[in-house]
Computed example of a mutant assay.
Amino acid sequence: MAATKQSFFGRFAEKTTQYSGSTAVFVSAVGLVLLWAATGPFFQYSETWQLVINTSTTIITFLMVFLIQRAQNKDSLVLHLKLNELLAATKGASNRLINAQDFSEEEIKLIHQFYCLLAEKAKEDNDLGETHSVEEAEDNHHEKLAAHRE
């Protein structure tokens, strides 16, 4: 699949996010803070001098939160797509989990309980790789219990 053309904002946000995480930007930010601190005596540590750093850092932080969240959303979606591909391609994997990120909180809790039960059954059976569903785990567990009772 060919890469699609991103919007101007998409390209800008991606480049800004990459650049803002670089060593050069960090060193520059430290340098600006040191420069600001060094000018304190010249400005007699006035309220305006303090307001400059407070306002600057607040604005930068405010804007960066949105860029970072945008990058996180994209990374999260890509991760989900990759996991969905693995689920869809793996024989025996439950396709119920494809697009699990779209489930409601209640559905996620229910599925979590499902897998907790499956994990408990697997612990009881001492065989983590054998079962693929709670039903199979319960059947195997009952068969083993029956065999031990005989």
Rank of each mutant, 00 (worst) to 15 (best):
Y45P: 07
F43S: 13
N140H: 03
S94V: 04
Y45C: 01
V30P: 01
T61F: 11
A3H: 04
S28C: 11
G31D: 06
K15H: 10
F62L: 14
A89N: 15
N73R: 13
L34S: 14
R96N: 08
K15I: 12
F114S: 07
F103V: 03
S20H: 13
L86P: 10
L145Q: 07
Y45D: 11
Y45A: 04
A2F: 04
A29H: 09
Q44M: 13
I68N: 06
D125A: 10
E143K: 10
A29S: 10
A13R: 07
L117D: 11
L51K: 15
I68V: 15
F62M: 06
V30H: 02
W49H: 14
R11F: 07
K5L: 09
A88R: 15
W36V: 05
E85N: 14
E105W: 05
V30S: 04
G10C: 02
A93I: 01
T57H: 02
A88W: 07
N99I: 01
N95H: 14
F12Y: 15
Q50L: 11
R149N: 06
E14Q: 15
C116H: 07
K91H: 11
V30N: 05
S94A: 13
W36G: 06
H132Y: 02
K74R: 13
H141V: 00
F62G: 09
E136Y: 00
S22T: 10
L32E: 08
D127N: 05
N126M: 03
L128K: 01
S7T: 14
N140P: 00
A88L: 13
T131M: 00
Q18G: 08
Q44A: 13
A13F: 06
N126L: 02
F42L: 15
L51Y: 11
E120W: 00
N73E: 10
Q113I: 02
E105D: 14
T55S: 07
F8D: 11
H148Q: 11
A93K: 05
L79H: 11
K5R: 08
S46L: 07
T4N: 05
N126T: 00
E150I: 04
R96E: 10
L97P: 01
L67I: 12
K121P: 00
N95P: 02
V134L: 08
R11C: 03
A3V: 08
T61G: 13
E143S: 02
Q72M: 14
F66Q: 11
A24W: 03
E143L: 10
K82V: 12
D139L: 05
A38F: 13
I59V: 15
Y45R: 06
A2S: 08
A137D: 00
K15D: 09
A2P: 15
L77W: 07
V65H: 05
L145R: 02
Y45E: 04
E47C: 06
I59E: 03
V65G: 02
E143I: 01
Q101K: 06
A122Q: 09
W49Y: 10
F62V: 08
T4V: 14
E107I: 01
H112F: 09
F103R: 08
L145F: 02
Q113N: 08
Q113K: 09
K123Q: 05
T90Q: 14
F26V: 09
I68A: 14
A13T: 05
N126Q: 03
D127S: 04
I111V: 10
V33M: 09
A88G: 12
N126P: 00
R70E: 05
